[in-house]
Amino acid sequence: MTAESSTPNGGGPDSGPGAASGNSATSTPPPPGGISRRTVVKGMGVTLGAAAFGIAANPLKSFVEDLTFDEFIQRHYKELTNDELTAVLARLKTEVKEDYGADVEIKDHRPLKGVKFGYAINLSLCNGNGKCVEACHKENNHDRATNQSYIRVLEMPKGTMDMEKGNTTYNHAVPLKDKYYMPVQCLQCDNPPCVDVCPVQATWKEADGIVVVDYNWCIGCRYCEAACPYHARRFNWTTPEIPADEMNPIQSYLANRPRPKGTVEKCHFCLHKTREGKAPACMEACPTGARVFGNMLDPDSSVRWILENKRVFVLKEELGTQPSLFYFFDE
């Protein structure tokens, strides 16, 4: 781009004679005085090049038109003052109305004091029916075309922990006798590789353990997707499609508001619900009761009881990611 834009300054026809006179070494005949033919050709070339450049750039028009100035200059979530944040939330609400025709409420939910979220999944109970996958899809306003969801369920042969033998595309009545089923979503690691690698701090770990993304700060380099050992992150390859009547209107800035295209998103433990004390959508949807969510700092919580009384394990423990999502078997 720089060459194309710099040539018009350099080779403009009005500055021609000086340019041509310095070039005695070229094989072309010397200029016949005044404006040389070479200069005219150069000028035409530059004009044509500039025109071609303009035409080539044409598709950018719609992108630039969609991008508002306020959106462009918006600062990082953590740097916004209360007033700025209020203005941002109001703007986002308007954008959802314009883009999707839906009336929504976008709040900013902050972590609760004295809370560190933990999630325990009972693999003896999970039967792989995928209701959690679907609940996540609806709750979090995922793209309808791709059945996007933060959860993937692996069907694994009993007797192995090797995911190489797993399969996510099974489509038969479940459970099969010789299989177990393992839902995987963001494990909200205490030592998250995805957060380390982000070059612009667009993703970070909050006090309650949730790893969040500022969708308006992410530059879309997808380094976090490469770094995550659990396939927990999703990129918006295009603007998600959500019909207005299917839009979940209860939204939060760091959670389930419609994500802009070109940015990364991930499971946020339904923070728009869980930071109001409510259970996450996947837990409520689970028909087998395999999911237990709660505050690990509360000694009376169910999740704490499981950590103390069940033989829990985490995925890929050897990587040292220290997940906040645990698995266990009853037997």
Partner: peptide, 20 residues
């Protein structure tokens, strides 16, 4: 220049339509 412009045009499409 022609190849670069074709590439630039493709990139413009990519930016406006998304990385799909």
């Amino acid at each position: 220049t022609a190849i670069a412009l074709v590439g630039f045009n493709a990139w413009c499409h990519q930016v406006s339509e998304g990385m799909i």
